[in-house]
Amino acid sequence: MTYLFDPSNWEWIFAGKNARFMLEGFLVNLEIAIIAMTLSLVLGLALALLRISKQRVVGGVTGAWIDVWRNLPLIFIILFLFLWLPRGVRESYADLVPGFLPDVFKNGAFLAAIAGLTLYNSAVIAEIMRAGIKSLERGQGEAAAALGLPYWKSMRLIILPQGLRRMVPATVSQLITLNKDTTLVSIIGIQEVMRHARIVTNTSGSPFTGTGIDAPLLHVFIGVGVLFIIVNFGLSRLSRKLEIRQRERTGTDVESITGLEDQVALDTSTR
């Protein structure tokens, strides 16, 4: 305890550029989370629509695709893509990236990281969206059909707006999980907050850390944890607020799903 609270063990925060360096690392995590989330939402919606397709084969194949990627560990997918993508592909990606983007994006491993996060999360989000669409009463689709709306129009105007709105809280809670999962890309060598933390604890060598002050590993990683808690706690508040607002607006009784791990978010809605 004295070790934990000893002020000299916290001095590293104010030494040199340490605090700034850590925040820069954390920013990379947030950027990765935002890019991966955007891609996952688009791909997830496409997968969800294919999954509920009336064509049996299409629905079945998409279902299998979703189940496979959703049930593999995310770190497994990232590591596999990293090792499997030929060096040539990664290098040509690195050459293709426009120059104004931050340096981390130019790393070939970044492609594997984003692809892995997107494959996994789009499968999870497809399942969330499908559950939202399925949770609508049959009558909605039937009424749309009776009014003469073609399939895609009834989807776009009737089914999706209602179904997806119900799933907003679950999607936000998936965003929290995704935000935590961005730390996994440190394993394939992307310079984000975990890597920066390890550089800070290593007092010799790096231009950022030649401060001569010992940065204890325990304290640095507690600092990393606090950064995540702040952002994710804010997101989970947002998710709860959205849920309450939505319950008031629609009068539907969507059960509490805030902050539960991805798959848990599904079960309340599939009932």
Binding site: K180, G225, I229, F233, S236
Partner: peptide, 24 residues
């Protein structure tokens, strides 16, 4: 609940293994 739910597992692993080790 709020602490352990919002912290990445990877950070917990670093804390529990390397962090505590450095703390003796």
């Amino acid at each position: 609940v709020e602490t352990f739910r919002n912290i990445p597992l990877l950070v917990l692993l670093f804390l529990s293994f390397a962090g505590l080790r450095r703390a003796g």
